[in-house]
Design a protein around this nucleic acid. Structure first.
Lengths: 195, 195
DNA sequence: CACGTTCCGGACCGTTTGGTCAAGAACGCG
DNA sequence: CGCGTTCTTGACCAAACGGTCCGGAACGTG
């Protein structure tokens, strides 16, 4: 009973995510969020509490999507080695130069808040642990499928790949040329993902 | 002539740097900066213009110090390979866990502002280009010294090392365990810095 | 159709923000 | 010592901030 909500919670979270993603947590005002979501102040506070809680909700959903995405990518695919190589071969200009240079929303948020906000740190830690596990599993599978040397330590290589991927994401934001980025990806494939 | 300044500009820039470093650009108020530097509002504005200009000055000095530091480290040392290995072997808890988890000030600033502030982007690009060049030179020297395979592409490996180093810096902030971080460094040495 | 309940819009609040300004203090110079 | 110049201090400002609250609108239910 009572008056039903006029908005779709998922859509609102999407809009808020875009806004936080664009400018970061501190530089995003409630006014920005109201304009982006189309909601009034009362609705926003009534539905999500306050700015910080809304942010955590947005960040959590993003983190889950990301982890699930990586997990699915790794689970699918005929050969694990192809999936792994794909992570470092994909064209760095898929989404256009602007959108891409925003980087990973979770990485941005961690950089801005991890030292002060334990909940953000926890979210980041859990998510990157999950991604690390995915990479590790994929490496192990690639070894089992004969596409990587039998003496490969899956955890070690998985972690190294995670570091490279994060490094790539970061360098993207520094306007490193696509050629240079591609070269790093290619070098990763050549040097670490060969049998 | 005129009244002489009561403060040392370098010390003020240091204090301001610490403050920006701790909380980022947007979350640092002029009030914080006044308390940290001990200067009154008028002095700060009189000497540096406004918040943004002060920040750029602070960031520029940090970037130069960083680039010079890497450059010097690479220039010195008997064998280039030892310098390179040193970058990935050094104990990740040198400065204590808190200070370290702040990460690189330039990287943090790029993440927060690079999409919106061309001057920050430019500073980041120039600095990381310089670091990349340092790595590349070190790799070339290591090849010449017979510590890396003769067919090594110095630019390619230099860039890859840069990506790994940035990835490590980032993962540090996500509270990845020191063991895991050390393992990544060790893996880098084992897999990429062996003859 | 009346009622209870929930939600919406936006006026409103105290605080904090980045930035200005004027009055006076501290020098170097003549 | 008096003058011009520069620096310091802190009061002050308009705007923006996050957050609260209330009158009315929009339902489900009886």
């Amino acid at each position: 009973m009572g008056r039903p909500r006029k908005f779709d919670e998922e859509q609102v979270l999407r809009a808020a995510r875009d806004e936080f993603w664009k400018n970061g947590y501190a530089a995003t005002s409630m006014d920005d969020l109201m304009k982006a979501t189309g909601l009034g102040k009362g609705s926003l506070y009534g539905a999500f509490g306050d700015k910080h809680q809304l942010f955590l909700k947005v960040l959590g959903s993003y983190a889950h999507e990301t982890a699930d995405g990586v997990c699915d990518a790794v689970a699918g695919g005929e050969r694990a080695i192809d999936v792994l190589r794909g992570f470092f071969t994909s064209e760095p200009s898929d989404d256009g130069p602007v959108a891409l240079r925003r980087g990973c929303f979770l990485a941005n948020s961690s950089t801005e808040l991890a030292t002060r906000d334990p909940e953000v740190t926890g979210c980041a830690r859990a998510t990157y642990q999950a991604v690390e596990d995915c990479f590790t599993n994929a490496v192990a599978r690639a070894v089992a499928e004969g596409d990587l040397p039998a003496d490969t330590n899956p955890r070690e290589l998985g972690r190294l790949l995670l570091a490279i991927q994060q490094g790539l994401q970061f360098l993207l934001k520094t306007e490193m040329t696509p050629e240079a980025l591609r070269e790093i990806g290619a070098a990763t494939v050549d040097r670490l993902l060969k049998s």
